[in-house]
Nucleic acid binder design. Structure first.
Length: 498
RNA sequence: GGGCUAGUAGCUCAGUGGUAGAGCAGUGCCCUUUUAAGGCAUGGGUCGAAGGUUCAAUCCCUUCCUGGCUCACCA
């Protein structure tokens, strides 16, 4: 049953009146010749030629003055005023004008004009109800003050309502809709770059019998027909590597990943990721792709590589600086960990009150010092390279330092925004490392992984030398659009039912 | 999970131990150049839910629900 109130009743009454007048309040189609951006960009020409235009949008301002009515319609590209004079439209159309409310979708036909107050408008000769809204929209209003600043009155601002009723947020808050336009352009820029680089776009399973590729707790679900437990993807890494084994030597995929963990400003249970893998490449090649992608994405969204975001001034001009983990620790913590004894490192850990879970491993201790002393200082953009081998079992050993691996993590505004390796392709070592991880539970962490025999089988069949990259797309969008929370870059963030 | 904080009209908010107010929106009338929609009039609320204290609760207390900020957890 529709949730009624006096305003809904009033609109439903208008709906009935429209039908009594023989007007279909929900017609099937309306031909639009121009959008508002075109109308505005071609103002002089349209005025001079008195071109007949057909245009449609949603009523966001309505001011009827007796036998004349001013309204603003908003379409995807902007908004513009429509002027309807009862003397210029059929009498029946003006009856429709009188039954129009904020939020209705309207189509008009007419020519362009400038009002006495100087506002460029469409003067309607036909006025068509395209969809009658029976629920009132919030009614923010705005004006430009003497300083030229936009002042908004009664803004639609409730965070909860904005997320739950994103359709209203998008309708009423232009800055919100701009975020999603930019999001689309960013994704497009990434895709274009990878396609230019001869990458193949592929799709891999979301429902997986065994999850893997990241240390994360999965969502579990059930396939009734097969009586089978399935997991929602936490990462697509293992499938993309299978693609490389199969000779699809440059692949990428945008995916939704699902991780059954806490939510906060930068974590959502459902988030977008991009991974790409390139045969015969190493992590140095992948760093170049990474910085190129960010540079292009930033330009696509902002028209420049220099932006202010998360309270910091950041340049995404490639190339980005590189710093090894050892160098970073020396720079920010003043420690030469490489030449320190285990006991010395233990004492530094204790000094910092860092708690180490599970079995003591030198590499994990060094990682902890890095996270504690360095991460917050990495305004970036910067690549941190050459991690201790305990960091991950999927990365290839460093070509000169046996205790390290060829991993890099890019940092921007102190956030880790990706992860990349020269991929481990020695199948026997891969098996050993995965078995070690499974048996050890990674030093007491919860997220032990089941052994993925099928993945190991594929590596055994021959993975060429490969570079791989994972990018957290939502965090990337947050940074490139300067949004404070991950929910501000997801159209419909998860909310508990009301 | 911890701390802090919020929920009052369609929206944004004010408010009080004696069952509630404003602006916009709505309704009615007037208005052919408005622009925060100009004039006059006017309807609208189980004050998030349930319990408790009290003569009396929207207000005080408890619990719950739904949010926000923050810490912790989490690549």
């Amino acid at each position: 049953m529709i949730d009624r109130n006096d305003q809904v009743d009033a609109r439903i009454a208008k709906l009935d009146k429209l039908r009594e007048l023989g007007v279909n309040p929900y017609p099937h189609h309306f031909s639009v010749s121009f959008d508002s951006k075109y109308l505005i960009d071609n103002k002089d020409q349209l005025l001079a030629a008195e071109t007949v235009v057909r245009w449609a949008g949603r009523v966001v301002r309505y001011n009827r003055k007796g036998k004349m009515c001013f309204m603003h319609l908003k379409d995807r590209t902007g908004k513009m005023q429509v002027v309807v004079m009862s003397s210029n439209v059929p009498e029946s159309d003006y009856e429709v004008v009188k039954l129009t409310d904020l939020g209705d979708w309207i189509g008009v036909e007419g020519t362009c004009m400038v009002t006495q107050a100087g506002e460029y408008s469409v003067r309607a000769t036909k006025f068509v109800m395209l969809s009658k809204a029976v629920r009132p929209l919030p009614t923010p209003k705005e004006k430009i003050d003497e300083q030229g600043n936009k002042v908004v009155f009664d803004e639609f601002a409730s965070v909860e309502l904005r997320y739950r009723q994103r359709y209203l947020d998008l309708t009423l808050n232009d800055d919100v809709r701009e975020v999603f336009y930019k999001r689309s352009r960013i994704v497009q820029a990434i895709r274009e770059y990878l396609l230019e680089q001869k990458y193949l776009e592929v799709e891999t399973p979301t429902l997986q019998p065994i999850y893997g590729g990241a240390n994360a707790r999965p969502f579990t679900t059930h396939h009734n027909a097969q009586g089978m437990t399935l997991y929602l993807r936490v990462a697509n890494e293992l499938y993309l590597k299978r693609c490389i084994v199969g000779g699809l030597d440059r692949v990428f995929e945008f995916t939704k990943n699902f991780r059954n963990e806490g939510m906060d400003r930068t974590h959502s249970p459902e988030f977008s990721a991009l991974e790409f893998y390139e045969a015969f490449a190493d992590y140095n090649d992948m760093m170049r792709h990474f910085e190129n992608i960010w540079e292009r994405a930033c330009i696509a969204a902002n028209g420049t590589t220099e932006i202010e975001t998360q309270g910091k001034q950041v340049s995404f001009k490639a190339p980005w600086p590189r710093l090894t983990v050892y160098q970073a620790i020396e720079k920010f913590a003043g420690l030469q960990v490489e030449s320190m004894s285990d006991d010395e490192i233990k004492s530094e850990i204790a000094k910092r009150h860092i708690e180490m879970k599970g079995e003591w491993l030198r590499g994990r201790a060094i990682l902890s010092i890095f996270e504690h002393d360095c991460e917050p200082n990495l305004t970036g953009p910067i690549f941190i390279t050459d991690f201790p081998k305990e960091s991950t079992p999927l990365c290839k050993g460093h070509r000169t330092k046996p205790e390290l691996i060829e991993q890099f993590e890019p940092y921007v505004v102190g956030w880790e925004v990706g992860n990349a390796y020269t991929e481990l392709n020695d199948p026997l070592l891969q098996r050993e490392l995965l078995e070690e991880q499974v048996s050890r539970g990674r030093g007491g962490e919860d997220e032990t992984h089941p052994m993925d025999e099928s993945f190991l089988h594929s590596i055994e069949c021959g993975l060429p030398p490969t570079g791989g990259v994972g990018i957290g797309v939502d965090r990337m969008i947050m940074i490139l659009t300067n949004q404070p929370t991950i929910r501000d870059v997801q159209l419909f963030p998860l909310m508990k039912p009301e």
